[in-house]
């Protein structure tokens, strides 16, 4: 078993772990981390494929560099959404109970 296929399997495992977290955990921060784990798993599959035959494939590596920046932008936006949602809910809760 060569290094490339080891990391291919590891990438698939990380992706699955992230999927499991996304489906089963409830806290928004944990879910955002889970999505990031899925992204890391995908990147690992791509980079392992890039190094499969000894010489590195610059196209796949460049795609992953782009993907990293896109991932951090999406994470930043998702975290702000989660914080805004939390603030909204804590503002809503007292009035909601009052109406009941």
């Amino acid at each position: 078993m060569s290094g490339a296929s080891l990391y291919l399997g590891l990438g698939v495992l990380l992706w699955l772990l992230g999927l499991h977290g996304l489906l089963r955990l409830r806290h928004p921060l944990r879910r955002i981390m889970a999505i990031n784990l899925m992204g890391s798993g995908t990147f690992m599959v791509m980079v392992a494929l890039a190094s499969r035959s000894g010489h590195n494939d610059p196209v796949l590596q460049a795609l992953v560099v782009t993907g990293l920046v896109v991932a951090v932008s999406a994470t930043a936006f998702a975290l702000r959404l989660a914080v805004a949602h939390q603030a909204h809910r804590s503002r809503q809760r007292p009035t909601g109970e009052h109406e009941e």
Binding site: G3, Y7, Q61, L68, V69, V72, T75
Partner: peptide, 20 residues
Amino acid sequence: ARLGAPDLALAEAAIGAGLT
């Protein structure tokens, strides 16, 4: 870095680990 992608290792250390 092990997989021969130093560009990515640099970006991950700064973006993935630091800023995230």
